[in-house]
Amino acid sequence: MNLLKTKALLHNTITKEYRNKALLFLLIFSLGVITLANALVNFISETFLVNNPQAAILGDKSFFVMFMVITFLTTLISVILGTSCIKSDFESSSIGQILAFPIQRVEYLGARIIGAWITSIMFFIISIGYTAFLFSLSTKASFISGPVILAILTASANLLTTITIAAILSLYLPKLFAFIFTFAIRILIGSSNAYFAKDSFSEIFQDMSVLKFFGAMIHFFFPRMQPMEVFTKELLEGKSVGLDNIALFGQYFVTYIILFSLLSLFFSRKEI
């Protein structure tokens, strides 16, 4: 792997993606929602909670809600970027020119996926940073802490998975369908994870039906997005984080590698 070429391609991806009109619209929308939410928090704390310690609690609760809203908006962004990061090269006919460089297809994919991921993380950080800044002015509390930074990282893992699923689907489907099916797959993964969340390994295979088997396959072979969301929420709520999460991260990492390998396999079979 040539780092200079990969860096050039990564930079090209970010340059391409931050001009995405949907991303710019959602960023403005997101900042607007945050500003309105802050105005509401400000109004409540200045009208009803003057010199009241409840103001800080209101700030914490509001920040938690806003974090979840921003996570959802960033998920939307990641689906949009995932469906376009490779598809747009086919649409602009530049794919042939790029793959004519002496680079492996997997390097191209890596640069496109990581570039889209970095762009969505930038959106996430800007929105969370803006929220923390405004809310700290309104409630005189600080919102940036170790757990919040860790929560941003764990939420970002799901963004990477979402981008990769969207990119796989965009190889075969028009953008709109890829967008819809990415959400459908996310719901399917989340439902399977929630269904099997409390079951032990042996309990999962009891009373097996076709549907349950299908769900179990999704639960085992896809990154566990729903437990990662729960983990993020627990971090934000200040709950203690147990060692059992190491298994979650391990499963997540291995299954993500499988997912990316699938993208790489499908793309290697694609003729330009």
Binding site: N12, T15, S92, S93, G96, Q97, F101, P102, I103, Q104
Partner: peptide, 18 residues
């Protein structure tokens, strides 16, 4: 092999870029 394209330049019929 990707290395076969070292030192190869390609101009498509309709050259376009971003």
């Amino acid at each position: 092999e990707a290395t076969s394209r070292e030192g190869v330049g390609y101009l498509p019929e309709k050259f376009s870029f971003y």
